[in-house]
Amino acid sequence: MNAINILDLTVRYSDKLVLDQVSCAFKNNHLTALIGANGCGKSTLLKTINGNIRAQSGQITLADGQNTYQIDTKLLAKRISMLPQTPITPEGVTVKQLVSYGRAPYLNFLGQLSEDDKEHVSKAMKLADISDLADRSVSALSGGQRQRAWIAMVLAQDTETILLDEPTTYLDMSHQYELLDIARDLVNRHGKTVIVVLHDLNQACRYADQLVIVHKQTIYDQGSPKKVFTEQMLSEVFNLDARVIEDPESKTPMAIPRATRQTPTATLI
């Protein structure tokens, strides 16, 4: 079953065509990585799925057949959550307060957290391993801690589908893998559907069940990494001359750029 189906989606920014008749599907209880060169439309696709951007044509439907454009914004926020590339942290907010913002779609007309809301906030912080940071100011956290706090906010929203737009940007290597382990765990242990934009192709292959490859404002290919991550794809989509081998640790495809011939340098006299 597919969590999200996209058919003939076209998006423009003023006169600029960003997505051109995009059709693809995101499987339920899978981690899907969106990959493609810079500016190809990956982030725009996420924002359109989340309802932040309105498409000029085409449709997005959920597993039950509902068109996202026909769902009330608050109801859609109970089904799809998104962590943008560069979220802005409100001044003076603690970690617990930030995570509680994820409960906004569920609040009563007074804007008060119920006991159920508080339980979701506590559970989300535990899943993101930041319970001990609850009373810390978000602005005082390290990059990795801050990103986990934002992830916890998304988890508190308790949606069936989670969209992550380049969540590993600005994180060091260990924190990148730590965050992707959390994303993988959300699928394996909690039955979530996760769609993530990644620039590191080897990480995408290691963690994703499915790749959706965006190229020239449309879908180049989609499928399992072993099926679609090929040397031809790397050449055509990324202009990258690379070998595809098996990662010795994860047994997933891995790109190894071929050595480029060095231009001889003149001998200084």
Results as ranks from 00 to 15, higher is better:
156 A>L: 09
129 D>I: 02
160 E>L: 02
181 D>Q: 12
186 L>N: 06
175 H>I: 01
248 P>M: 04
132 D>R: 00
205 C>R: 05
207 Y>K: 10
233 M>W: 06
200 D>W: 09
201 L>F: 05
250 S>I: 00
225 P>E: 11
169 T>S: 14
156 A>D: 05
158 D>I: 01
181 D>F: 00
228 V>G: 02
183 A>N: 04
222 Q>N: 11
140 A>F: 00
198 L>S: 07
160 E>C: 01
172 D>H: 01
179 L>A: 05
153 M>Q: 07
255 A>I: 09
134 A>C: 09
231 E>D: 03
124 A>C: 08
238 F>I: 10
227 K>Q: 15
210 Q>A: 01
213 I>Y: 11
188 N>K: 15
223 G>T: 12
202 N>Q: 09
239 N>D: 13
241 D>E: 13
247 D>L: 04
158 D>K: 08
197 V>A: 13
157 Q>Y: 01
228 V>C: 12
184 R>E: 11
238 F>P: 02
214 V>S: 09
242 A>G: 02
208 A>Q: 08
132 D>P: 00
183 A>C: 15
153 M>W: 00
218 T>L: 09
191 G>I: 13
231 E>Y: 00
229 F>W: 09
227 K>G: 00
162 I>P: 02
157 Q>L: 05
220 Y>N: 10
238 F>T: 10
234 L>T: 04
257 P>E: 09
217 Q>G: 03
214 V>G: 08
158 D>G: 04
198 L>M: 14
164 L>Y: 12
255 A>R: 08
125 M>L: 12
186 L>M: 15
241 D>M: 01
247 D>V: 03
246 E>Y: 03
178 E>D: 14
